[in-house]
Design a binder for these strands. Sequence first.
DNA 1: GGCTTTTGTTCACGGCTAGAGCATAAACTG
DNA 2: CAGTTTATGCTCTAGCCGTGAACAAAAGCC
Lengths: 409, 409
Amino acid sequence: MNGATTSGQLRAHNRVRLLRAVHDCGATRTRSQLTRDLGLARGTASVLVAGLAEDDLLHEEPAPEHARGRPTQVPGPHPRGPVALAVDVREDAWELAACELGGRVTVLGVQPHDGTPEGTLGPLGEAVAEQVRRLGHRAVGVGVALAGPISHGGRVDIAHLGWRAVDVPALLGEPGPPLFVGNDTALAALAEARRGRLRGVRVGVHLHVDFDLGGVLVLDGHAVAGASGTGAEFGHMAIGGGERRCPCGAVGCWGMDVGANALLRHVGLAYGGGRGREQAERVLATSEEAVNATARALGRGIAALVNAHDPEVVTLSGHGVELRERAGEALLAACEPGLMAIRRDHPPRIEGSALGWRGALLGAMESVFDAFLTTEGLELWRKNHPDQARDTPDRQSVTHSTLDGESAQ
Amino acid sequence: MNGATTSGQLRAHNRVRLLRAVHDCGATRTRSQLTRDLGLARGTASVLVAGLAEDDLLHEEPAPEHARGRPTQVPGPHPRGPVALAVDVREDAWELAACELGGRVTVLGVQPHDGTPEGTLGPLGEAVAEQVRRLGHRAVGVGVALAGPISHGGRVDIAHLGWRAVDVPALLGEPGPPLFVGNDTALAALAEARRGRLRGVRVGVHLHVDFDLGGVLVLDGHAVAGASGTGAEFGHMAIGGGERRCPCGAVGCWGMDVGANALLRHVGLAYGGGRGREQAERVLATSEEAVNATARALGRGIAALVNAHDPEVVTLSGHGVELRERAGEALLAACEPGLMAIRRDHPPRIEGSALGWRGALLGAMESVFDAFLTTEGLELWRKNHPDQARDTPDRQSVTHSTLDGESAQ
DNA sequence: GGCTTTTGTTCACGGCTAGAGCATAAACTG
DNA sequence: CAGTTTATGCTCTAGCCGTGAACAAAAGCC
């Protein structure tokens, strides 16, 4: 991926490393800490920070606490710096947010939709376009999380909503900045890998329980995407041995026994079509038996994945957090007999996500910054940049003030 | 993984890149081609090649065919260059080979064994030690392929041979150069990724059919190892829905329906214990029905893996090559109904390995060179090096002549 | 108020690659 | 067969980069 070969690329490479380090730590580490972390000389760090500040990429503020010596600074997002737009499109509503370098998220709006491709992506496209106009060159990318497999061209299938090869970029109207469409499970896994329980984990498995079940392998901070971008579908493996036909077209998929649809089916309610989130939550809250049955199905499948992939940690998001809390014992009891003997000595931890339902949105942000925090991304920023810093004295950033809203993480 | 930050590391990084390119192409590309491939200036390539030749890492010979201009040279392994020792330990015999940079393999011996840890690894350790003595500093590592899951400490379990947490480094007697113990499936996959049908493939799945079934995900030329090194066990997922207990300790493992043991069981013969390779081959050759049943079980599981991981290619090694040839239609017919609808438009290719039974040995070699072809590996070589090139005039390499034997690939 | 500690800044130095100019060694041309 | 063409190897300079040391700055400590 990276790896400089000329001295010019070397500088670019170190700019990326520094910016990436600032982003990954959430803009909490001081300059002297970063210098040590990256193994740089103080002089080099000085030049790098100055250059990045010049390019409106970084802004230093005094560190809040002091130790003995000369006080150090904390590099963080620049007030005129890059912004990632992130969208989480759920079955019933979408959420749009603006994200600074370092990961601060400002939710710009939540809007229900009718579930049709046009009714969903049309208004979303307008909302995104408005933000892009407002932010100008500062919008460095738009990340969209969707609850279905996504081919590299941006075509999405959401079986239970009846979406079939829906062309997301076309319906969204080509926002201008690069568009990154991703599967919600893969993006939740990405967020977990960067800011959750899979941080620093070399091999992990992330499972996202929503209406159905998604899952993906996480290696060294990256979710494994698949050749055409439609990986992250662990839920569609024939584990469990049923003969029921899955809406996906296959038979006996594991995901049919785990998730909101399975909960509804278990208690005899209507299910499918992306409806029934409230009922499912009620079942989850009331029916001990349905919860345990789901947890057992989840545990059996986890055993198969643990055998196959030997992860260090298995994380659960969406309803999985509650399943882990409420029926952890049933889950582990169902998992254990499915494990190979050699896995039983040191079984992986099975943990609820630290990010809850926020993962997909945060992952959409990370996918944008993953593309931006590269030598190419930064080169493009430099090129598109109006370069106010040198010409005009210090034009107050009109745009930034409007970014203040509900703030999280 | 790599990525230089100082100009000194930059040189080291480019040395690695060049050497890696030579190795990966099998020492077939000319210097001018390599220069273009790596995006180097001609002058830089000149300096790099000279330095590597000085260190006994590379040796240039005139290119056999000429085009118009000045003839170019082909960099290849140096006569006093690094050698990787590679071992494939099968259930009934082991095979030891010496491998040059570029991948030329010289088989040094094949020896049957009794299947006990001591009876197998003891003599092997002696054979390895002898080669290490003979090669001296030229032996840069020993790679060992074994038919079982292997923890990072080098402890191996081979259920059907009764090996339980066998300490391979201890029984082998610490050969001196670094020891790399790996699972045969993972190593066969690695070889396939570097010199077989998974070359250049971003996402692939490799399945190795022997007595039982191993499988692993291959990403960008690397087999995914697992947190404790014991990944590559796709065969131990509960796909297929049986309730039979697997020797691994789990229940309903896919691998119980695929492989030599399954073939033997299918026709009512005794199976297990790593015996019966000949009988299994006879069944494979004679019983159309057993072959088809195995192919169907293989196909059903492949569908699950394709759904989950979205590979570009699925490769089969070991008996899988013959299964693909003899019962390809049964395999595909069993696979198709298990695929998600969206996978059916562009299903992955399912191909027999190009390396046959040789994969594990080649993979063991690659695992050694993967460690050697790094900045650290080359630095160590430089340090351990007697530096004959400068001191003595041109000592004839006694060691090299003894390396000539049966030669392959 | 002086001392200690830590960090930021500046600058000379060595190392690296790019690129240009030249040398070289073939194949092609007539 | 001699001149031309073409591609490659070699050498050297220019420009860029990070290191590390010396110095300056800004705190806490006694």
